[in-house]
Design a protein around this nucleic acid. Structure first.
Lengths: 110, 110
DNA sequence: GACCGATATGCCGAATTTGACATATGGTAG
DNA sequence: CTACCATATGTCAAATTCGGCATATCGGTC
């Protein structure tokens, strides 16, 4: 996998709609990144809802505060795997997970 | 991550309903494995629908035939990450992805 | 201002995941 | 049976991701 490329940038300031137009991303890469950001956003929302600190969540999933911070930031160094595992650890159901994945981050438009 | 445990077995003969009852899996682990199996199943279905061989798909996602075989078998050595990336490479939309994730593998019942 | 809890960022060695290869198995046509 | 193609399985070095740690930054409160 050669994702050292644009992924470095993915979550810097591109939390906005589609990054696709700014960088030269393939549909597939764009979809992957979008997905990651949706999960990241949701993770943070759910953690806060439960009134947990990043450190709490880290403990819960057997990770570290810094990794949780990276997850929520959509950092390229975190995999969908860990993101999803964390959501599951927070008690997210498949049903809810599916909703997260299909929900538009803003309004896809265009 | 200490998944060397039961995951060794996960995809052996446990394509059935919930593995949860046989092995001592936590809700979270069970959900994770179920999810993986759903994606695996879907990947195979979609690849076949497109009349592609595992080698074709491998080429498409920049992987190898053996890895594709492992993906479709839900092998513990493949991550959700790769599984999802492959589905995306096959043109699966977020919408479809979400449907895959929430769809029961059989009939969850009980 | 100083202090404090929460979060962000950079780094590193350890652990996991990957692609590739060899090889085995399965099915099918000749 | 042989040949061929698709798929399965095992292994391994290289690449990626991991947890943990140190440290920086960001509000609040005093």
């Amino acid at each position: 996998m050669r994702k050292e490329r644009k992924e470095r940038l993915e979550a810097k300031g591109w939390k906005v709609g589609t990054a696709r137009e700014f960088l030269g991303l393939s549909d597939e890469e764009a979809a992957y990144i979008e997905l990651k950001l949706r999960l990241a956003e949701s993770l943070r929302k759910r953690r806060r809802h439960r009134r947990l600190t990043q450190a709490d969540l880290a403990m819960l999933v057997g990770s570290s505060q810094s990794r949780v911070a990276k997850m929520e930031a959509g950092d390229p160094s975190v995999s969908l795997d860990l993101l999803i595992r964390s959501l599951l650890a927070l008690g997210t159901s498949s049903r809810e997970l599916s909703r997260i994945i299909s929900s538009p981050r803003f309004a896809s438009a265009t």
